[in-house]
């Protein structure tokens, strides 16, 4: 698969709280060839972007939907459940971007680890659903996680399925950094410390130089561009105009991980029964 230049943008949660406007933003983002739409901006984060992501799920098409998940109001048990459902309802087009909103960074990392532990309580092949024999699931493939971290303690099993993508795409914003393994996408300004991630997006404005971005992409320095939008409708059209040529063709099907070439990081791969017993 050829490497894709990733186009990403964020919209304030308060703007997305109007469904008529949100519908136009999603269509405009799709028309602009966007890969990721972050719902919420750390500086302006009232309301619950997870609800907006659920609302957006049936409209996602090929657009990755990435709610900001703030430790101010989120708890891993609730988050694991909501994101599992939205990942299914969107056909596997979900990402999530955990942020602190002034709280400790370690709490964000702990929320990520706890949420992942709950998802890992369900094996991806646990469902049988055989009407004839009456077997619904293989209960040996469901287990309590017994997670104990720095801020959260949660036992599980969570009453939700393992998400469609295994785990939704994890997006880390370098403005609200946290330290966990297996970050899929990092959003980083030029010169800013970059968390280890499979893909790095340059945070820049609409006036960024496309030629320079193209060179940095070609040299492997960046994997795409992220813009924080204040006027999403005109600005999405401008993004398409200025940077659309960099992005090129996108895959017409598959989950968000498949489309972006971001398989579940190896450190998060489910353990085989053999490894677990070792």
């Amino acid at each position: 698969m050829t490497r894709r230049f990733i186009l990403s943008a964020s919209v304030a949660a308060s703007a997305m709280a109007d469904p008529a406007f949100a519908a136009r933003v999603i269509t405009a983002a799709q028309d602009a060839g966007l890969d990721l739409l972050l719902i919420g901006q750390t500086a302006n984060l009232t309301l619950d972007p997870q609800v907006m992501a659920a609302w957006a799920a049936p409209r996602a098409g090929g657009l990755g939907i990435v709610p900001l998940v703030s430790t101010r109001i989120a708890h891993p048990f609730h988050t694991a459940r909501a994101l599992s459902a939205v990942d299914y309802l969107s056909g596997g087009m979900l990402g999530w971007c955990p942020v602190a909103q002034g709280g400790p960074a370690e709490q964000v990392a702990d929320m990520v680890r706890a949420t992942r532990a709950l998802w890992d309580g369900w094996d991806e092949d646990c469902l049988i659903i055989d009407k004839a024999s009456g077997h619904y699931l293989d209960s040996s493939k469901v287990r309590a996680s017994h997670y104990v971290g720095t801020h959260y303690r949660t036992r599980g099993p969570v009453n939700a399925m393992r998400p469609k993508q295994g785990h939704p795409l994890l997006v880390a914003d370098a403005d609200s950094p946290f330290a966990v393994q297996g970050v899929d996408v990092a959003i980083v300004r030029e010169g800013q410390a970059c968390p280890a991630a499979t893909k790095g997006l340059r945070r820049d404005t609409l006036s960024a130089d496309p030629a320079k971005l193209g060179e940095q992409f070609a040299s492997g320095l960046i994997d795409g561009l992220h813009c924080d939008l204040a006027q999403p409708l005109p600005e999405l059209a401008q993004m398409a105009q200025r940077f659309g040529a960099l992005a090129g063709e996108r895959l017409a099907s598959g989950t968000l991980r498949e489309r972006l070439g971001c398989p579940l990081p190896a450190v998060l791969a489910p353990k085989t029964a053999q490894e677990e017993n070792a």
Partner: peptide
Amino acid sequence: PTLDPMALLSA
């Protein structure tokens, strides 16, 4: 496995 009702209803 039940899916989160908030997510289902919002969708």
